[in-house]
């Protein structure tokens, strides 16, 4: 299977999030969104669809807030009803905010459907994130499925023992589940001790730690990363000194770059 280099995708995600939060024109935001769309099409992300589905609620909330609160600044008033005024300017502005959000969520959707958790850890290792926090996170990631299974079984144990959880008030319903929580806490900590013993035997914490999986970037990938990273200062310089909205060009570039990076990686 052809997969993009997780490091490239990670950098791409950071840049898209950064630019989406920073840009201030609808056209730029739309181009950015379109860029993520194209990439999403390339990677056939199932998770991306779920992301977009669930972000619609928040997106519509954002639209409402901006429309109602902006007070309809500008000249072209489209709609007026008591205190609600909607002008074409405020509508465009609200849409920009919505697509800002959608572009970011879409980028995250692409990221989740292409990069596995293990690769993300490798990327973070490469970025020199301190290893203690990473190892802690990985351990909890590996015990989490075990604990969810425990949680399910504990619920079943108490059901068979005759616990009745379906009571009326919230307090009673929580109270009925207390033994479950106690049992889960104790079981988790109990497992924790065995894990600690294993961690000790595997020689951690260690000051010599040297991550095995290294992300190797080929030349063209290095160039892509370089271009992506340089987009950020470039945007600020251009937007500030020349008042130019050059982003459209950059965004198109982003799209193609991400697409290329998929083509070429093993």
């Amino acid at each position: 299977m052809r997969v993009p280099n997780p490091f490239v995708i990670f950098v791409w995600l950071c840049v898209v999030v950064f630019l989406s939060l920073a840009v201030l024109s609808l056209i730029s935001v739309l181009t950015l969104f379109a860029a993520t769309l194209v990439v999403a099409l390339f990677v056939h992300g199932d998770e991306w669809k779920i992301y977009m589905k669930y972000s619609t609620i928040t997106a519509s909330l954002i639209l409402c807030f901006n429309l109602l609160l902006s007070g309809g600044w500008g000249n072209n008033v489209l709609f007026k009803y008591y205190f609600i005024t909607i002008s074409s300017e405020s509508l465009l502005f609200s849409l920009m905010m919505v697509f800002k959000f959608l572009a970011i969520v879409s980028a995250f959707g692409v990221f989740s459907s292409t990069v596995r958790i293990e690769d993300l850890i490798t990327v973070l290792e490469r970025l020199r994130i301190p290893d203690k926090a990473l190892v802690t996170a990985v351990i909890s990631l590996s015990v989490f499925p075990v604990l969810t299974k425990d949680a399910k079984e504990i619920t079943e144990v108490f059901y068979v023992r005759g616990m009745n959880c379906e009571k009326k008030s919230m307090r009673d319903r929580i109270k009925a589940r207390m033994p479950l929580l106690i049992s889960l806490a104790e079981t988790a900590l109990e497992r924790g001790m065995d894990l600690a013993q294993t961690l000790e035997l595997r020689g951690y914490p260690s000051r010599k730690r040297n991550p095995w999986k290294k992300i190797k970037l080929q030349l063209y990938e290095k160039i892509i990363v370089l271009i992506l990273v340089s987009l950020v200062p470039a945007y600020f310089t251009l937007a500030y000194f020349f008042r130019l909205q050059m982003l459209e060009i950059f965004s198109v570039m982003l799209t193609s770059i991400a697409a290329i990076s998929r083509r070429c990686v093993e």
Partner: peptide, 16 residues
């Protein structure tokens, strides 16, 4: 190592 796993396990417990 005990403290690191304790933190890890409590994180997983809290999520589970």
């Amino acid at each position: 190592s005990k403290e690191i796993t304790t933190v890890a396990v409590l994180g997983a417990f809290s999520a589970a």
